[in-house]
Design a binder for these strands. Structure first.
Lengths: 140, 140
DNA sequence: GACAGCCTATGACAGTTGTAGTAGATTCAA
DNA sequence: TTGAATCTACTACAACTGTCATAGGCTGTC
């Protein structure tokens, strides 16, 4: 599907992207202030990561306010999550089952969760057979 | 639960652990030969990773055959997977839902999968209330 | 008992990642 | 218009990773 062969993000880069996805856009200062007080890195550390994200084309400069740049994400949270999940699945031999089983066993998954998921899967099956939508409607 | 605050493995280290989990135990040579022909690293590269795994106490020397050491895993596949999953969940804000939804949407999850999961979850709920087992029976 | 062949122990190195300091540009309030 | 505050650009660096080469130690065989 996606031709933009998805960008690889490090843990910290991902954390900063999370902030940007929440904010929509923001300056280095804003990003830094949204990071958890515990272990909040120096301003220039955040700046460095944002620069690397720029190089990777994961964010871009949207505009300038005062003398500060405002950055915005160029990749979606969804696509990033997509990548993470696929990477994890690879480590598991490609099957989602062990992953699911783990979640179920460790109580991270409730019966209600599963019911809702069934709806999603059923809906998806219907869409596919009905060919009603190419990429289904969704938010996130 | 686990007091052994779980070892952090890199991708390659994990790949080698996978081989060892499958073999039960093996020499550097055996491990190397089990790696996919495409991109199979040099013998000494595998050796280096195994050494690092030793340092991390993820494997140990079980015995010596001829002049070669035979290594065996010290951590379970299960605990390693556990860690990976938890790390992923953290990136998702701790909730399994987005992860599950993603799997459902991308068709990695079938209705049968979900049905079986319901059994697991239901069983788990029963165990917990009934206090019948401490760590439930399982294979993996 | 000497040697080819495989093994181990070590060292090395470049790329990535997290972390931050410094210097100089820009801004804005007085 | 000037000076403090705030930014950006650049540099640095150690730890971690993937990758391998080299040197020297065993072993099994003729």
């Amino acid at each position: 599907m996606d031709r933009k062969k998805s960008i690889k993000l490090t843990r910290f880069e991902l954390e900063i992207m999370q902030v940007l996805w929440e904010l929509g856009s923001g300056s280095v200062r804003e990003i830094q202030e949204r990071l958890p007080e515990k272990r909040r890195p120096a301003y220039t550390t955040v700046q460095t990561i944002v620069r690397r994200l720029e190089e990777k084309e994961a964010v871009r400069r949207l505009k300038k306010i005062g003398n500060a740049f405002i950055f915005e994400p160029l990749i979606t949270r969804r696509s990033a999550h997509h990548r993470l999940i696929n990477e994890l699945l690879e480590s598991f031999g490609g099957s989602a089952r062990p992953l699911m089983a783990h979640l179920a066993e460790t109580g991270k998954l409730s019966l209600e969760d599963l019911k809702e998921l069934e709806d999603i899967v059923a809906q998806r099956a219907a869409d596919v057979s009905g060919k009603s939508s190419k990429t289904a409607k969704r938010s996130d």
